[in-house]
Design a protein around this nucleic acid. Structure first.
Length: 105
DNA sequence: ATTCTGACATCCA
DNA sequence: ATGGATGCCAGAA
């Protein structure tokens, strides 16, 4: 499998998110050259459960879009707090303050 | 080959 | 402001 595949680029981009910061799906997609492929980023994260800092990826509202039962939003909350990222929980909806923690490459 | 689906992002009512 | 519809694009059926 060639290392230039969209999937590989996405994985690299996600791995490069600095500790203590958060990136959006669209941002990752844009970094890999396909600004319109935010949804594919999600699919890839879903396929690669381990080995990726998936907890540093949120949608543009700063919300967590976890669907995978193995990696629940609560776990993501813990992981982020461990990196000193402030978490807001409103109406059982976990989100991060993008104004403060969004990664600007 | 065609249709459906989705860890998103936008637009419109 | 909030929800529904639409666009994108690769993989699955």
């Amino acid at each position: 499998m060639n290392s230039d595949s969209f999937e590989q680029k996405v994985i690299k981009a996600i791995k490069s998110i600095p500790k203590g910061q958060v990136a959006t799906y669209g941002q990752i997609a844009a970094m890999t050259g396909s600004p319109r492929s935010a949804r594919l980023v999600g699919s890839i994260l879903r396929k690669n459960p381990d080995r990726l800092p998936w907890h540093r990826v949120a949608n543009k509202k700063g919300e967590i879009s976890i669907v995978n039962i193995e990696f629940p939003a609560e776990l993501q909350k813990e992981l982020l707090e461990k990196e000193s990222v402030e978490i807001k929980k409103i109406n059982n909806i976990i989100s991060v303050d993008l104004d403060k923690y969004l990664w600007n490459p």
